[in-house]
Simulated scan of single mutants.
Amino acid sequence: MTTSSPQSSGSPTSGRDAEPAAPTPLDVAAAFDASPVGRDLEAAPLRSSRASAGDEEDLADRVVAAVLAVPGVVRLHAGAFGEVATYLPGRAVTGVRLRPDEAEVHLVVSAGRPIPEVASNVHEAVRALVSGPVHLFVEDVESPPTRSPAP
């Protein structure tokens, strides 16, 4: 069984150089703001509803730093199957999944601190950085390392 891509479906544009993509409905909707009705929309540039890769990379790194700075957080966790990540050009930030409308943080906490307190502190730290809801998952609890007596 073979499948064909939308461009090889025999559309009138196949075989020609690709033209710039038309704005998506989200791009058009982003061009409208709360200004008075009847303003000159052709003079207003379309704003993309997506953040640039650099902004997303910066935000992901700031979220990681804020989470790891909370006392009681041992490390971020990639999820049961390693699927929790924010994918950026050339790398993935594991343990943090940033979406336009929400954020997820998966972490490992220390058994030496109250888990609800650590979770609350992480939630507050991330909430200060992102818009939208923050979903926090404590994936594991790690005991502090035990020291064996020195001989």
Rank of each mutant, 00 (worst) to 15 (best):
A18D: 01
S4T: 03
V96E: 01
G79L: 05
T2D: 12
P133Y: 02
T3P: 04
P100Y: 05
D17H: 03
D58P: 06
A44E: 14
A29Y: 00
G90N: 05
H135E: 13
H77I: 10
M1T: 15
G82E: 03
A80I: 03
A31I: 02
P116I: 06
S131A: 03
R16H: 03
V130A: 07
S143R: 15
G38Y: 02
Y87S: 09
S48M: 11
P100N: 15
L136Y: 10
L136W: 08
E139N: 10
A60L: 10
V28P: 03
E83C: 06
S5V: 02
F32N: 12
G95W: 13
A44T: 15
D61Y: 13
S143F: 01
V93S: 07
V73D: 08
V108R: 11
P145I: 00
P12E: 05
E42I: 14
D61W: 07
V74M: 01
A34R: 07
L98C: 04
Q7P: 08
V105E: 10
G10H: 00
R39T: 06
V67A: 09
A29F: 00
R97C: 05
P45H: 11
T2M: 15
P151H: 00
A53N: 09
P133A: 15
R99F: 03
A29V: 01
L98N: 02
D27F: 00
A18C: 04
V84D: 09
P89G: 04
T86A: 02
E104N: 12
L76D: 04
A34D: 10
E56L: 15
L98A: 05
P89L: 03
V134Q: 14
D27C: 09
V93F: 09
F137A: 14
P71F: 07
G79C: 00
E124N: 04
P25G: 05
S49I: 03
A111S: 13
V134I: 13
H77C: 10
A150E: 13
T146F: 08
R147I: 06
V96S: 06
S148V: 03
E104D: 15
S14A: 07
A80G: 11
D61M: 12
S48H: 05
G95H: 13
P149I: 06
R97V: 01
D17L: 01
M1Q: 14
D140H: 11
T3W: 04
T94L: 12
D140C: 13
V64S: 15
N121S: 15
G15D: 02
A85M: 08
G10V: 01
A65Y: 08
G10N: 01
P20E: 02
T13G: 06
V122D: 07
V63H: 12
A103F: 07
P149H: 06
G132W: 09
A51I: 10
V63F: 12
H123I: 01
E19F: 00
S5A: 06
V28N: 02
